[in-house]
Computed example of a mutant assay.
Amino acid sequence: MCSVTAPTDELTVEFAGEAFTVGPDAVFTVGREGDLAIDDNLFLHRHFLTIENVQGLWLLSNVGSRLAATVTDSGGRVQAWLAPGARLPLVFAATAVIFSAGPTTYELTISVAEPAFRETQQLEHDDGLSTIGDVPLTHSQRMMILALAEPVLRREGTGMSELPTSAQAAERLGWTLTRFNRKLDNVCDKLDRIGVPGLRGGVRSYATNRRVRLVEHAIAARLVTRNDLPLLDLERESAAADDD
């Protein structure tokens, strides 16, 4: 349950240990250039996201032409897909924004001191590690996701991470590439069937895009967490023992 309060006059954007304060009369730009110049990554738009206060409500807009972002509350209970041309109100005390450009995944946090909606009752929910909605994940499917998300999970706070290729992630687990790709296919198909966007694409871009989109969704939905990372070494040891 949520109660409605008046929004604050200021907003804070955090990325890679830096904090930026945005006033109500400013338009804050995120991209390769702008108020938050994230990276010189040529896959990233010069101007990708904007944040502005419109009639007392903070709005996050995607002003890019190709990339999308995953937007979630701090508890991972609400998740939105911000496509090019879309905009979304920032109504929570803390909002995580996760997006990828090429093989690099970025995460920033937007905080509002007096959010439009404030949670007044703790919601009961499962840990989100074994299922996404009503779709069960096997242990090996979770390990596949964990191997791809490892660089993001090991990062302290917000910032950027280079995602592994399928071959690198398979090696991390001690699996063959064929087995890894089969698990990746299965998970992407399952999530696509329940409506998770961005897991299907053209033949030329599908292989890369589905990996980065899967990691975005897994992090935003708390499908895997830092507490799961020790399982990677156990999985590799198990795979090595099976080969003996």
Rank of each mutant, 00 (worst) to 15 (best):
G64R: 08
Q122E: 04
L199A: 11
R213C: 10
E156C: 00
L123M: 00
V196S: 02
P230R: 01
G23N: 05
R222M: 03
E18Q: 15
L191K: 03
G75C: 04
G76C: 07
Y106I: 07
W175S: 01
V187G: 03
E10S: 06
G102S: 09
G31D: 12
M160V: 10
F99R: 12
I98Q: 08
T138D: 08
E124R: 02
D127N: 12
W175F: 02
W175C: 03
G201K: 07
T29G: 02
K183L: 14
E156G: 01
A94C: 13
D40V: 02
D192G: 13
C2L: 07
E33D: 14
G198Q: 09
G56N: 07
T105K: 11
G56C: 09
D233L: 14
V91Q: 15
T104L: 09
R87D: 08
N209C: 00
A68Y: 09
L173M: 06
H45G: 13
I38K: 09
L146T: 05
S130E: 04
E162C: 00
E119V: 09
T8Y: 02
I132L: 13
Q141N: 10
F99M: 11
T165E: 12
D228T: 03
P103G: 08
V27P: 04
E14P: 00
A240P: 00
T29I: 12
A207L: 13
P103I: 04
R77H: 06
G34S: 15
L90N: 08
V112P: 01
L214S: 06
T105C: 13
D244W: 09
L108R: 12
G64L: 12
N181Y: 02
L60A: 04
P84T: 05
E216V: 06
A218G: 05
R182Q: 07
D233C: 03
D9L: 05
V91A: 14
V97A: 07
V196E: 07
L234I: 00
L123S: 06
A94I: 08
G174R: 01
G23P: 00
L199R: 10
D243W: 10
H47Q: 13
D228Q: 12
R77Y: 09
R211Q: 14
Q55M: 01
W58N: 05
